[in-house]
Design a protein around this nucleic acid. Sequence first.
RNA 1: GCCCAUGUAGCUCAGUUGGCAGAGCACCUCCUUGGUAAGGAGGAGGUCUCGGGUUCGAGUCCCGACAUGGGCUCCA
Length: 591
Amino acid sequence: MNDLERMRHSAAHVMAEAVLDLFPKAKLGIGPPIEDGFYYDLDLPRSLTPDDLAAIEERMRAHIAADERFESEVFPTREAALDHFAGQPYKEELIRDLPEGEAISLYRNGPFVDLCRGPHVASTSEIGAIKLMSVAGAYWRGDEGRPMLQRIYGTAWPTQAELDAYLVLLEEARKRDHRKLGRELGLFYFNEEVGAGIPLFSPKGEQLRYQMERYVREAQTRHGYEHVWTGHLVKESLYRRSGHWDNYADVMFPPMIDEEVTFRLKPMNCPSHMTLYNEMGVHSYRDLPLRLAEFATLYRYEISGTLSGLTRVRALTQDDCHIFCTEEQIQEEFSRCLHLVTEVLETYGLTDYRVQLSLPGGEGKYVNDPEKWEKAIAALRASLDANGVAYDAAEGEAAFYGPKADFMAKDALGREWQLSTIQVDFIQPARLGCEYIGEDSAAHTPVVLHRAVTGSTERFLGVIIEHFAGAFPVWLAPVQAKLIPIADRHLPYMQEVAAKLAAAGIRAEVDSSNNRMNNKIRAAQVQKIPYMLVAGDRDIEGGAVSVRLRSEEQLGAMKIDDFIAFITPIIETKSLDLKEARAAKEAAAVG
RNA sequence: GCCCAUGUAGCUCAGUUGGCAGAGCACCUCCUUGGUAAGGAGGAGGUCUCGGGUUCGAGUCCCGACAUGGGCUCCA
């Protein structure tokens, strides 16, 4: 535990102390330090209000000012500890769950005593600047079958200046929230009547989707993948056979029941792709690997409380792929996936991600076939290691059919989202009867790698909106150039320029509103349009436009053809810069 | 799904103790025709999320639904 965590942990104690001042009968849960702050879970006689938070914060300041020393004590026996915390059911449970032989200690500051392993600061006066942030419901031990406690979140920093800086940072993050920018830039909307979690994309939003998907499709083709299409509805019986019905039923939309058959909206593609594989005829080992990719819109009945903007929706478009291969081919295919994934993430400038090896946990949703799991996990680890990928392992995060390598990126508010994923599946192909004929002329079951590059178009868009703060690179920008005439008499010229740009494949719009040029520039700036092309008498005379960048830089007058020649390589190389094309990369080895 | 908060014009938000529905921006019209982040004047726009209830009277109080937002093991 570092100094900051220790201080925040102590702040959590002081917060519990303050709550007890106001609610002497409160039952205490746990109160750990967390990233940026701390929380404490409490069972209280009534719901807390914002006013309560202010009162608690005030009491905390009093305890901090009182310079209460933290002192620890070790209970001689578990019974002594239980005795001491009698009437505190959550603490009693914690004590009972502590492993045999571990010392059970308490920490005391002023009148407050808490079961605690420590460590703490020497005295409450060492707690710096604090602020209580929010109240939330939290199930005891994260189990929805257990009571819901009230969790108070707070933040604590060594100095007031650091606290203020943190609050400013939070404010900045809110400004780049993709939900806010999505509305401001007119990209997508939600509507009650259409349904929660189903985004409606405007022409600008769809332009973004189109560019993103076009890019991945092009990259996939270049990397040796083929595209398929398998529809939106599937008979439920297929999901019963694949095992999804057992593991995924609560995430599927309710069934559509015809007289004889029951359909489901497709929540994933694997069974469809495996069925397609089977329909495509007898496969020879010489045909493998077979890489079937699809941009598939899936429907998942995510529980209402988890829906959030574009990052968790009920209609999502996956850039999914299933690679049918032999066991020997796993590593090479994994490397191929990895090259594709890293190329794409790099194009977007998304370099702040971590890789998580998602393993099965103790609980029961995982298919019970230890031998195959072991093989799959070994193959995945070997592939990660062979490619020198640093990763941490997370138990309980695997798919029900296999382990995953997940690429996790953070949004503006620091929340992590899974984008790319590569999964090894030894289970489903057998269930769905996939086969290939081996060298030995006998039938074998292929291994399937499941793989998504951007994950889902919607979530990835949400993440890159925040990543770019809405100022998209030129190749993605829904409107690449805004044409701004200085006076109305320049409008016909601007229409001509727009036509020329359109002919060159550049997305340009003329601002023909009855506003002054200054106002039009401001409007284009606010919309974060990369280029503003201004023209008045002087420019028209030379067949030019005056180029302004959204960075506020002026490039001066440029002939139309020169502007086209200037912008085209920037678009084609998917440059992240407004003035320079991306430097040509040394030919990447593509298997 | 569960806890808490919120829901007023396209957007951001005021709205007093229950007593005629408001502002800024955006939009429309007119004036202005300008050289790199908001020119001026006027106008239109609301079933106060929806459904019940209390009341002479509800945007305001109560109940329910829906939606949105913050959360729901980072383990004493």
